[in-house]
Simulated scan of single mutants.
Amino acid sequence: MEPLSRYDPLVDDPAAFHEACERPLPSVVRVNRIKATAESVRQAFDEAGVDYEPVDWHDGLFRLGEGESPGNSWPFVHGWVYGQEEVSAVPALALAPQPGERVLDCCAAPGSKTTQLAALMDDRGLLVGNDNNLGRLSALRSNAERCGVTNIAVTRQDARNLSLKPFGGERFDRTLVDVPCSCEGTVRKNPDAVDGWSLDHIEGIAGVQKAILERAIEVTRDGGTVVYSTCTFAPEENEAVLQHALDGGDCRLVDFDLPLESVPGVTDWEDERFDDAVRKAQRIYPHHNDTGGFFCAKLEVAR
């Protein structure tokens, strides 16, 4: 896949990277702990004859056998599980919201990460699921209802100028910024993800990402946590966006642990040099964990 060759200098094994990108992605479901436990889902899958195996790095994720579809089982219909790409579970784990907190998901629809956040919060506190796409918001509402989420407020705002007025003007404790991106890391699920690829598109969407992250930092309290994530490999959408946030002076990057293999963010890309702090971000490549590609960074608001 030609556009992905630009990242060969960043990966340890370009041949393995490209080979992995061309393999189909296994279907994965996440246990919705608002309604079920890993053990009850195992039992339900066994009774329904669903072929599955646990994901070794997370006890609430199951990979489904070839030909299995997440939506074809009664545990899915009843909201016990959510079909979610394996690495898509990473940002919510990094954000680590606590029950009773005020949490914002800037770009929430269709709701995989939002429903995961709600479960981590024990469905307590305030969870704002925001998106500016009306069609996708209906999916968010439907998924939240199926999963039994009751602590959510669904809003339709442009995340670049999100208003705190509907929430009493009070800032959030934690904010997830899983931004729209060029989606290069989803190529195993959507082989056409790199069709029509252009640097102009990457640079254009990076401007949107910078504005969303900037506003997310503004609406998060001092000492609060912001997690920035994408499903793309492009440093223009990853480290360069973090650099923009660091240049704003109201945040710092912090270390965080992931239970799967990853590599640090890059500090040099083409003719750009980024702050050494971006090495605290984590890149996940398809050939390391047999997953999609992902980027995740954790920031602390420090005004």
Rank of each mutant, 00 (worst) to 15 (best):
A277H: 10
D247C: 04
C231H: 07
G265M: 02
D271L: 09
L253I: 01
A234F: 02
Q243V: 03
R221M: 07
L260W: 07
D275I: 14
V263H: 06
V266Q: 09
D257P: 01
V219F: 12
D247P: 08
L253R: 10
E237M: 09
Q243F: 04
V219Q: 06
T225K: 12
A234P: 01
T220Q: 09
V226Q: 03
D250Y: 00
A277C: 07
V241N: 05
V226T: 06
C231Y: 01
E261P: 03
E218Q: 15
L242V: 07
T232H: 11
T220R: 11
P259M: 00
F256N: 10
D275V: 13
T230G: 08
L253V: 02
G265D: 02
E239W: 05
V226H: 03
L253S: 03
T225Q: 03
T220H: 08
D268Q: 13
L253F: 07
G265W: 01
R279T: 12
V266I: 14
L246I: 01
A277S: 15
L242T: 08
E272W: 11
V266A: 12
D222E: 14
A216N: 05
E272V: 00
R215F: 04
W269Q: 10
V226P: 00
D271Q: 14
G224E: 04
R252Y: 02
L258M: 15
T220V: 12
V227N: 04
C231D: 05
L258Y: 11
T225V: 15
V227R: 10
C251H: 04
D276W: 06
S262P: 01
G249P: 14
A240P: 02
V226D: 01
D247I: 06
V263I: 09
L253C: 04
G223Q: 12
R215W: 06
V266P: 05
R221F: 02
V254R: 03
E218N: 10
D271P: 03
T220N: 10
A277G: 14
V254K: 02
A277M: 02
P235W: 14
T225D: 08
E236P: 00
P264A: 09
